[in-house]
Computed example of a mutant assay.
Amino acid sequence: MKRIGLYFGTFNPIHIGHLIIANHMVEFSDLDEVWFVITPRSPFKTKQTLLDDHHRYQMVFEAVKEYPKLKPSKIEFDLPQPNYTIDTLVRLDEKYGDGNIFSLLMGEDNLKGFHKWKNYEAILENYTLYVYPRISNGAVENRFKEHPKIHHIDAPVMEISSTFIRKSHNMGKNVRPLLPETVWVYMDEMNFYR
């Protein structure tokens, strides 16, 4: 059985923080692979600032191609929008469930609002959550603190954001060190976020 961690996000763009977290999870937990699930549209975000799905997939592909344990996934591209995590998990189990055990990766800040997710009880019943630390205010709900399906992983705290990268790049700032080189090249050639 292969244990696969699912790292959901718009990855608009993917940056070194995403790679560091994903690589840490696959190297320092019992996960065998991490799949970057590129979200066409989050129920909690507006689509206005999102690059086309194909371009964000290509940037993730470029970022992880040298890392055999990290994979891009466009499983959500064909699901009805807006899509919810539980629907994606069901589709992944239908399509790749033989021989694979899926888990979710999430930042501690997302765990605070996890009780608002559609069918969060079913997610916790059937899947494991791997939570990495984030600098944030407020406490995680008590029901999630000692939950047997929630594993807190002592990963590096990454406070790089795609929003910061987009805004800074648009202002003419040099954001190249915050991106995998292959992503920077693709982004620059396509003239994104200017």
Rank of each mutant, 00 (worst) to 15 (best):
V131H: 08
V131M: 05
Y132M: 05
Y132L: 04
P133G: 13
P133N: 12
R134N: 13
I135C: 15
I135Q: 15
I135P: 15
S136R: 14
S136E: 11
N137L: 08
G138Y: 00
A139R: 12
A139S: 10
A139V: 11
A139G: 07
A139N: 09
V140L: 06
V140G: 04
V140Y: 09
V140A: 06
V140P: 03
N142D: 06
N142G: 02
N142C: 02
R143I: 00
F144N: 02
F144W: 05
F144V: 02
K145C: 01
K145D: 00
K145N: 00
E146H: 14
E146A: 08
E146L: 06
E146T: 09
E146W: 11
H147V: 00
H147K: 03
H147W: 00
P148Y: 02
K149I: 03
K149L: 13
I150K: 15
I150L: 14
I150C: 12
I150R: 14
I150V: 14
I150Q: 13
H151V: 09
H152Q: 11
I153H: 14
D154R: 13
D154Q: 14
D154Y: 09
D154E: 07
D154G: 04
D154W: 05
A155L: 09
P156L: 02
P156S: 02
P156V: 00
P156W: 01
P156N: 05
V157A: 08
V157H: 07
V157Q: 13
M158W: 09
E159A: 07
E159Y: 05
S161G: 02
S161V: 05
S161E: 02
S162M: 04
T163V: 06
T163Q: 15
T163W: 14
F164M: 11
F164V: 07
F164N: 12
F164G: 09
F164Q: 12
I165K: 10
R166V: 08
R166A: 08
R166P: 07
R166Y: 08
R166E: 10
